[in-house]
Design a protein around this nucleic acid. Structure first.
Lengths: 244, 244
DNA sequence: TCGCAGTGTTGCTATATATGCAACACTAGC
DNA sequence: GCTAGTGTTGCATATATAGCAACACTGCGA
């Protein structure tokens, strides 16, 4: 997952996309200075970038002058849904798995210290509640988050922990690293508040993770993990259209 | 839909997002110079911007050094799907309408000279084929495109036509403007290769459009348009979470 | 095999633009 | 009315970006 930096990284683009991502995931309108504090960025810069996003329709201001996603985010979601194909490619697998297990099935990606869900629901969960309806969840408490964190190199994990202090758990850093090491070994992770979910990575290199959540019989754990891995293998990541 | 330009628009961000959008919608990997020609941008700039997107994981190169969407586009689709909520909010309406009419139902947004679909399918179309599976379609041939173009001001439409030459139809500009004027008057549009679809705008101001396609009895046209408008009114656009 | 035409990337440097300071306008609460 | 917060702006300037030119690479045709 480590990428070679090009000769010149365009910082404005990096900063602007950072603002956009934060804005889109905020669960309420956010002010310029608040966002600047969150991102440790100068408020003028943030104001300028949000102004540009607003001009593009990707942001919009309310009557309190706070920013929230604008109309062009609908366009962005249509574009990226098509460009990613992950949701459409995985839906059959997800629905089948949900029907088979009778449990909640989830597909999520890691975004900073959180997991963002593309899908989260049971077999008969209405689609509008299963797709795009949940907000971000802390990665370290999520089986999806833990299995994705376990795929990172030590350097990547250290870098992420350095930037995301809320990723560091109460039990301390060494124990955290050790538990991720165990996840790596087993090939699956447990998560949820009471360990009620189980996840495996999707894609090689991993770009998402697939989880089942609900009542998991400890004796069936390994079997379920195998089943999930089988399902994950059926989800194609970023294949060219010629593969269809 | 006209937006006030902020004091200082960040051009790098605008250019970078333009590259990203084009990349995500390309139906095959695209080269730097090809994209530069399409966007009428200097190739070095495009190379630099794509390099930055690649560094962020939003782009990736194949063995021919051409660029295609990278793993972070999955994250972007999860983020924007959540931020937009348009797909999740409209799914019940779409599926109900599809069941009721027995026809194809579509929800799309206008992106440059094309329509991009969030949803396109019949009542029993598998979700993986209905969501995010279709690529862009020329706006002027689409009922969704025409009804959305009809919502633009004269200035906006002129600006768009100036930038998107493929938007200009064979019958000429005045006739095009006149037909859009009629769409505006009627409150719905016909589209498709043989006029086999009918669409109304969603949202005020319009951010998307809802269409039915298939066999449309001309005598039921007005009635169907009313039904579509009723359905469109049930799709909430960009409400704050407090409205849920 | 060589030459050509296309490709993507880079170092370098000039300059256009992004940045941040400071000022302003606005809002809410005491 | 004052204070503390807010978002935005003009201005000047530092610097990040942009483009030139060179390089490495690839595929095709003679």
């Amino acid at each position: 997952m480590a990428r070679v930096a090009p000769a010149q990284v365009n910082q404005s683009l990096v900063n602007g996309l950072t603002c956009l991502q934060e804005l889109v995931l905020a669960d309420r309108p956010i002010g310029v200075r608040e966002l600047a504090r969150q991102l440790d960025m100068d408020p003028t810069r943030v104001s300028r970038l949000l102004g540009t996003l607003s001009w593009l329709g990707l942001a919009s201001q309310d009557e309190d002058r706070k920013y929230h996603p604008g109309p062009a985010v609908h366009v962005l979601s249509a574009l990226s849904l098509h460009g990613s194909r992950l949701l459409s490619d995985s839906l059959p697998v997800l629905r089948e798995l949900a029907a088979e297990t009778g449990q909640i099935v989830a597909l999520g990606v890691l975004w900073r210290s959180h997991v963002c869900y593309l899908y989260h629901g049971k077999a008969h969960t209405p689609l509008e509640l299963a797709v795009g309806a949940r907000g971000p969840f802390p990665a370290r408490q999520s089986s999806i988050g833990r299995v994705l964190l376990a795929q990172l190199t030590a350097a990547e994990l250290a870098d992420l922990c350095a930037h995301e202090s809320d990723l560091l758990p109460p039990e301390g850093v060494p124990a955290f690293y050790e538990s991720l090491s165990q996840v790596r070994e087993r090939g699956y992770s447990r998560g949820g508040i009471h360990g009620e979910s189980l996840a495996v990575a999707v894609g090689c290199p991993a770009v998402a993770a697939l989880a089942v959540a609900g009542s998991i019989d400890p004796e069936q754990e390994v079997q379920l993990a195998d089943r999930l891995r089988e399902a994950a293998a059926r989800i194609h990541i970023g294949k060219s259209p010629d593969d269809v």
